[in-house]
Amino acid sequence: MIDTIFLWIAAGLTLAIFSFLYKDNPFYKVAEHIYVGSAASFWFLYLWFFDVEPKILGPFKEVFHAYGFWGMWAHFGATQWILFIPIFLSICMLLRFIPPVAWLSRWAIAFTVGMAAGLGITGALQGYIVPQTQATLLPVWSGDLLTSFNNIIIIVATLTTLVYFFFSREHKGIIGGFAKIGITFIMIAFGASFGYTVMARISLLIGRIHFLIFEWLGSLF
């Protein structure tokens, strides 16, 4: 019974959002605000159940159960003490909400930004630029005409696109010629991406209409 009621709620919300296609209306607005409000509360639940509970409170659980809150401090090992560094930074992050000490949140942000920058550099270098450059060093003559032709196209497309990317100001002479070939390949790539994007968007609609026809209306018959 409860499942049936919720199935109808699901169908109602789906139709409320589709009603936007006709024009903006209160039904759509209600559904939209429910969506945004619930998504916001999700982030708190995730923060608590997948970060604070296992990563911050977890390591203290055993000592806490054994010695209680006041007794546990004397029994902390290195694992527990060192954890106070990220705990401090996490608290800093939350201090953003208290104006007089809001500047402390920069410490936490600085840490996440520095880590993201470091991870970004190492990942891009080791995981993209080096292996992808290696994979472009293809034999120009591989023994068969079609493969050789394709290899040459891949090499030319990669190089000319890069040229277009880095010399976007002056498109003169040989560099300009390369950049022009580069833009041609970029257009082909964007066309392909567009084709795939259409496929993706339509799939989403197929999913919703499938729900309305087979799950919702299907439950009536």
């Binding site: 993209y128 630029i129 994979a135 990669t158 790539a189």
Partner: peptide, 16 residues
């Protein structure tokens, strides 16, 4: 072939 080459060039550029 052409799409892959162009994407590779684009992403090498983006990552650089």
């Amino acid at each position: 072939v052409p799409q892959l080459g162009a994407k590779r060039g684009l992403f090498i550029g983006i990552w650089l």
